[in-house]
C-alpha cells in the first residue's frame, strides 16, 4: 500500500466521521413525512402492519424498507413490518390470514414465485383465493450458473456431460421458479439432472463454487451479488436485463427457441380478499398511492443506494399479479410429482 493510499485510508476513519454518521442515521430514522392527505374517509388513521414471511435483515426486508420509505409519503402513514419467518414462508401467511383483521390495515409482503409454488406442494390451512396479490414491486429471474473453477465452463459442456451422466444441480429448494426452469431445460435438451436442495441462496452459491454440485440454479440477484466467484450461463427470462452483472448470459428462449414463461421471484404486496370487498375505497387508495412510488425519483435513488437492481423494479397491479399467481399454480401442477417426490 502506498503512503498516500494509507493516509487517505486513515483520514477517512476519523472519530468525527462516526459521529456524523450516527447523527445522519438518527435524522434518517426520525424524519417523518408531511405529504398531503387524501380521500377515503380518513383512511389510514393508524399505521399499517406489513407481514413479511421471511427473516429480518433479509432481501425482502431491505426491499420493503426502500419501498415503504417512499410510499409513506403518499399514504401519509407509517408501515410497521412484522417478520414471521419459517416453513418457507408458510408461517407468515398463516399468521396474516389467521390473526389479522381484513380491514386494509395489514398487508403481506411476499414472494409470488416460491411462495405460490408452496401451496402446490402442500395446501395451507386457508383458501388460497382468500388473499390476492395486488402490488408487484420487482421481478427477479432465475438463472443457471457455475463456479468460476468448474470443469463445465459453457452450456455446451453441460449438455454434453449431461448426456453422459446424471448431473447434480444445486438449488435453494425444489419448489422454486429457478428449479422449474432447470427442469424445463433438462426436459428440452434431454439431459438428466438431480436437483439438490442446499437450503438457501448462500449455500447454493457455495455449492457451485466449491464443487459440491456440478452447477446451480438460483434467483439472479443473489448470483450477481456473488461477483467473480461464479459465472452465469443462462437466464430464465425474456431478456437478461442485468447484462454485464450476469456475464451477458443469454436467455433460455434465445438459445433453444423455447417458449418458457419467465421464471421469476417476484415480490409483491398482498391483501385479504375480504378487505378488498369490504373496503373498496381503502383498497383504491392503497393502489393509487402505491403506483406513485414508481415514478418518484427518490425511489430509484433509494433502490440504488441499497445496492438493489433498478432493472428489476417492475410495477404490476392486480391483473398482472393474478396472472402470475395462476401461471405459478399451473407450472407447479405440471411438475407436482417431481416437487413432492410422489
Amino acid at each position: 500500500m502506498s503512503n498516500s493510499q494509507r493516509n487517505s485510508f486513515i483520514s477517512s476513519l476519523s472519530r468525527r466521521s462516526l459521529l456524523k454518521a450516527g447523527a445522519a442515521a438518527a435524522v434518517l430514522g426520525s424524519s417523518g413525512s408531511l405529504a398531503s392527505r387524501a380521500f377515503a374517509a380518513g383512511y389510514p388513521e393508524r399505521n399499517i402492519d406489513v407481514i413479511v414471511p421471511t427473516r429480518e435483515g433479509g432481501g425482502a426486508d431491505r426491499n420493503l424498507r426502500a419501498f415503504t420509505a417512499i410510499w409513506k409519503k403518499y399514504l401519509d402513514t407509517n408501515f410497521e413490518p412484522g417478520f414471521y419467518p419459517g416453513a418457507s414462508g408458510r408461517v407468515g401467511y398463516e399468521v396474516y390470514m389467521g390473526k389479522y383483521e381484513p380491514d386494509a390495515y395489514s398487508l403481506i409482503f411476499g414472494n409470488m414465485g416460491p411462495e405460490v409454488l408452496n401451496w402446490v406442494v402442500k395446501e395451507p390451512s386457508f383458501n388460497i383465493d382468500d388473499y390476492i396479490y395486488w402490488g408487484r414491486v420487482d421481478t427477479d429471474p432465475g438463472c443457471l450458473f457455475i463456479g468460476s473453477e468448474s470443469k463445465l465452463q459453457t452450456l455446451d459442456d453441460i449438455i454434453a456431460e449431461g448426456k453422459k451422466r446424471k448431473l447434480n444441480v444445486g438449488t435453494s429448494r425444489l419448489a422454486h421458479p429457478a428449479s422449474i426452469g432447470m427442469l424445463a431445460l433438462a426436459e428440452h435438451t434431454g439431459i438428466e439432472v438431480t436437483l439438490i436442495p442446499l437450503s438457501g441462496g448462500k449455500k447454493t452459491v457455495a455449492g457451485a463454487v466449491t464443487g459440491e454440485v456440478d452447477f446451480s440454479v438460483l434467483t439472479s440477484g443473489t448470483v450477481a451479488a456473488a461477483g467473480d466467484a461464479v459465472k452465469t450461463l443462462l437466464v430464465f427470462n425474456d431478456k437478461n436485463v442485468l447484462g454485464e452483472a450476469l456475464d451477458n448470459a443469454p436467455t433460455m428462449n434465445e438459445v433453444y427457441g423455447t417458449n418458457l414463461p419467465p421464471m421469476l421471484s417476484s415480490r409483491a404486496f398482498g391483501i385479504h380478499k375480504a378487505a378488498v370487498d369490504k373496503h373498496p375505497d381503502r383498497f383504491e387508495m392503497l393502489q393509487s398511492t402505491f403506483r406513485k412510488v414508481f415514478d418518484d425519483p427518490e425511489y430509484k435513488a433509494s433502490v440504488l443506494k441499497a445496492k438493489g437492481h433498478w432493472e428489476y423494479v417492475n410495477y404490476g397491479g392486480v391483473e398482472e399479479c393474478a396472472k402470475f399467481k395462476q401461471a405459478m399454480l399451473e407450472l407447479g401442477a405440471k411438475y407436482k410429482s417431481y416437487l413432492t417426490g410422489s
Partner: peptide
C-alpha cells in the same frame, strides 16, 4: 421438521413453528 428435499413435515405434531 420438513424434510430437506421435498419439504414433507415430519413429527411436527401439526405445529408450523416446527417445520424448520
Amino acid at each position: 421438521g420438513a424434510d430437506h428435499v421435498y419439504a414433507t413435515p415430519r413429527g411436527t405434531m401439526g405445529f408450523l413453528e416446527l417445520y424448520d
